[in-house]
């Protein structure tokens, strides 16, 4: 019984288990997956009502509106990323796993992106039609959103980890995270505008990729540190 215990399987098993668990949980609570999409569609329908249904005018602002609405929808779903784990005590347990915490955080953020970022990117072209987005830029919208929401999830997860222990963390989370979203928004909507104008969007996507690379490299450590801070209160 008391021989020292060595983990037989490495971190990969833990990461896969974490990913599987999170995807299972999110798919079982459909609400968490559907809500951001409905919010995205709703916000998009507000703008023509608020501004004007005139297609020519909408086409001009469509890239920016789509990106801002997608960004806010992604932000909406971030609050629950760690909160449910924090409330039922499993966050405390997986922080104690002998595997590197940053890796497990990456698994959690990947699960979150797969079920919020990607669906937003897939539904965006449909909403682009409603905003009379010029043809030819739907593909750019989809790719830039898919790439951009990955960075948004990573950066947002830092804010979520910092505010998970706080009672009314939701509002503070958006205050912390939105300024950090601005570069992604600039190059994301820039990509779609470039596609609309017809000029090359490779540059924009390249920079979005670079932002994602930086986020992938630095965010997990910040998330792990933030979680340890929130757990110890």
């Amino acid at each position: 019984m008391n021989r020292p215990n060595e983990p037989q399987r490495g971190a990969d098993a833990a990461v896969v288990a974490m990913l599987k668990r999170d995807l299972m949980l999110l798919l079982r609570q459909r609400g968490d997956v559907i809500n951001p999409l409905v919010f995205f569609a709703l916000v998009i329908t507000l703008f023509p009502i608020g501004i004007s249904p005139e297609p020519a005018l909408l086409a001009v602002v469509a890239p920016g509106l789509l990106w801002v609405a997608a960004l806010l929808a992604a932000l909406l779903s971030l609050d629950g990323l760690f909160r449910s784990d924090f409330d039922d005590g499993s966050l405390e347990q997986w922080l104690l796993a002998p595997q590197p915490t940053a890796l497990l955080c990456m698994a959690k953020v990947l699960a979150h992106w797969l079920l919020t970022g990607l669906p937003l990117a897939l539904i965006a072209p449909l909403l682009g039609v409603m905003l009379a987005l010029p043809a030819g830029s739907y593909w750019a919208l989809c790719v830039s959103l898919a790439l951009g929401t990955a960075s948004l999830s990573l950066i947002g997860a830092i804010g979520a980890a910092l505010t998970v222990g706080l009672a009314r963390g939701g509002v503070l989370l958006s205050l912390l995270v939105l300024p950090l979203y601005i570069p992604v928004l600039i190059f994301g909507s820039g990509a779609v505008s470039a596609a609309v104008v017809g000029s090359g969007l490779a540059a924009h996507l390249a920079i979005l990729g670079a932002l994602l690379a930086v986020a992938l490299m630095l965010a997990p450590w910040a998330i792990a540190a933030a979680l340890r801070i929130s757990i110890n209160g």
Binding site: I158, L162, T163, G165, L166, G169, L172, L175, L176, A222, A225, A226, I229, S230, N232, G233
Partner: peptide, 18 residues
């Protein structure tokens, strides 16, 4: 805002540093 949001001084300090 983050520094003031934490109940404990220590937690707020670390969160604000991060």
């Amino acid at each position: 805002a983050l520094r003031r949001a934490f109940a404990s001084l220590e937690g707020g300090a670390r969160a604000a540093s991060v």
